[in-house]
Amino acid sequence: QVALSRTQVCGILREELFQGDAFHQSDTHIFIIMGASGDLAKKKIYPTIWWLFRDGLLPENTFIVGYARSRLTVADIRKQSEPFFKATPEEKLKLEDFFARNSYVAGQYDDAASYQRLNSHMNALHLGSQANRLFYLALPPTVYEAVTKNIHESCMSQIGWNRIIVEKPFGRDLQSSDRLSNHISSLFREDQIYRIDHYLGKEMVQNLMVLRFANRIFGPIWNRDNIACVILTFKEPFGTEGRGGYFDEFGIIRDVMQNHLLQMLCLVAMEKPASTNSDDVRDEKVKVLKCISEVQANNVVLGQYVGNPDGEGEATKGYLDDPTVPRGSTTATFAAVVLYVENERWDGVPFILRCGKALNERKAEVRLQFHDVAGDIFHQQCKRNELVIRVQPNEAVYTKMMTKKPGMFFNPEESELDLTYGNRYKNVKLPDAYERLILDVFCGSQMHFVRSDELREAWRIFTPLLHQIELEKPKPIPYIYGSRGPTEADELMKRVGFQYEGTYKWVNPHKL
């Protein structure tokens, strides 16, 4: 086992960053958080920038500027975001240094004079007029057009580079997404736009490419001749908990499936790229999406959770019991969808996408189930092999396979070949997804960000279904809070070829 401390991990990262040409360590950078008073800024962006600063992973002359409508001070920003920093008493001095680099400007999102004030403020910072500028839009999409237009007109660096990070949702359907994309691309070049999907920053999602293309053993079996089906799962054990009003506007397909799960599907299904260059990788992902037809209604199961009468606390409440959810809402909190990649490698292999709230566990994984062994000599005792990439929690890679049961006879039983990170790298604290992705933006690497043509294809696949749901308002199937979801989803999976045995229990190697 390799035991690495946080300091050692960050030392390795620093070495990698400083050796590259793309990370300008000594240049002045300004990180501007648009929507600095909001939840995302408070819980994710400010803490992430602090962790990067604490670990010495930001360029040395980096300033952080918050911008929002609320009249706040840096002290206010500190008060609301610091509880999420997880700072230790030993880091007190470092924390003071961090907040000394912070400033805040209040202004409207659609007022040109406010942006001119913001620009004057940035120019007044040390070497601010020639600094590289990175704008993070932690804002609702309704203000994107006004904000990007004003940034472009008043706040661009004339000497350094300018980059803009856009948070999902990128529209509600193909038409609104196209409108937003066309607007942003009329102001910024594609190499300046970073559409963030934080799932692409997760260690195991990034590991998929290495697993596939750096190991000879997987190449020959990664196709329709050997793989019976692919299941991509995202499960949350909690409901909307008072935030249903926002969720109800989008629903589970827009929230998770059309982005996170579809991105994971691309990494499983794509061909080997010409290189690890950002556009070479994204070219292959677009090719996969172009091979997927629009979702067919007979390959869809929609569910909505109801309270568990035997549960406790939140578990007793259904989705419609959330006071922020519109009365009688038919918005799905669970969806199972089957897609097919219609190309030579994957023809006929079902890709089953499942996601839901208020389920029995927290889990995100990719599961490849292989065909049955031909010419069975073990009297149907063999179960199908599976390769599982567990994204969260407890990152893991393992192969479910058959071995001989101890004893006199040739009785096979299920076991696993474990390729888990935790076994080799004991207690290594890896940077989280937002840390990686923000560092990628500083480096100018777009590999783990969504390109406009990729986004367009993703919406093309799901828009007809979303429009049909909005028009017909089908009643989702009720499922109990804390269950596996509607049984109809299991029946759909069985119908397209997935075999669920229920006889195997994964042993978490992190707890051995």
Rank of each mutant, 00 (worst) to 15 (best):
D255M: 13
L261Q: 03
M264S: 09
C266E: 10
A269V: 04
E271R: 03
K272G: 07
K272H: 11
S278I: 04
D279M: 08
D280K: 08
D283E: 12
K285C: 14
K287F: 03
C291T: 10
I292N: 01
E294N: 08
V295Y: 04
V295H: 03
Q296R: 12
N298E: 11
N298S: 14
V300M: 07
G303E: 01
G303M: 01
Q304L: 00
Y305A: 02
V306M: 12
D310Y: 13
E312H: 07
K317W: 09
Y319M: 02
L320A: 10
D321A: 09
D322N: 12
T324E: 13
T333H: 01
A335L: 00
A336T: 10
V337D: 04
V337Y: 01
V338H: 06
V341T: 02
N343C: 06
R345C: 08
G348N: 06
V349I: 08
V349L: 00
V349F: 01
P350S: 01
F351W: 05
L353G: 01
C355K: 02
C355L: 02
C355Y: 01
K357Y: 12
A358H: 01
A358D: 00
L359M: 09
L359C: 14
N360M: 04
N360S: 14
K363D: 13
E365Y: 05
E365M: 03
E365A: 04
L368W: 01
L368D: 01
Q369M: 14
Q369R: 09
Q369D: 00
Q369Y: 09
F370A: 02
H371I: 12
D372M: 05
G375K: 14
D376K: 13
I377G: 03
F378M: 06
F378Y: 05
H379T: 09
Q380D: 14
K383Q: 14
R384A: 15
N385Y: 02
I389E: 00
Q392L: 14
P393R: 03
E395P: 13
E395F: 13
A396W: 15
V397W: 12
Y398T: 12
T399G: 13
K400C: 15
M401Q: 06
M402K: 05
T403Q: 14
P406T: 15
M408K: 10
M408I: 12
F410P: 14
N411Q: 09
E413F: 08
E416F: 12
L417V: 15
L419I: 15
T420N: 04
G422S: 14
G422F: 09
G422V: 08
G422H: 10
N423I: 04
R424Q: 15
Y425Q: 15
Y425L: 12
Y425N: 15
K429D: 15
K429A: 15
D432W: 05
Y434Q: 09
Y434F: 15
Y434L: 04
L437Q: 15
V441Q: 01
C443I: 08
S445A: 11
Q446I: 07
H448S: 14
F449L: 04
E454S: 12
L455S: 04
L455N: 04
T463A: 13
P464F: 04
L465T: 09
L465Q: 03
L466T: 11
H467W: 09
E472M: 07
E472P: 04
E472G: 15
K475N: 10
K475I: 14
I477P: 05
I477S: 15
P478I: 07
P478H: 11
P478R: 10
P478N: 06
I480T: 11
I480W: 10
R484N: 15
P486S: 03
D490W: 13
E491H: 10
L492N: 03
G497P: 10
F498Y: 13
G502T: 12
W506Y: 15
V507F: 15
N508C: 13
N508D: 10
N508R: 11
K511Q: 13
K511P: 13
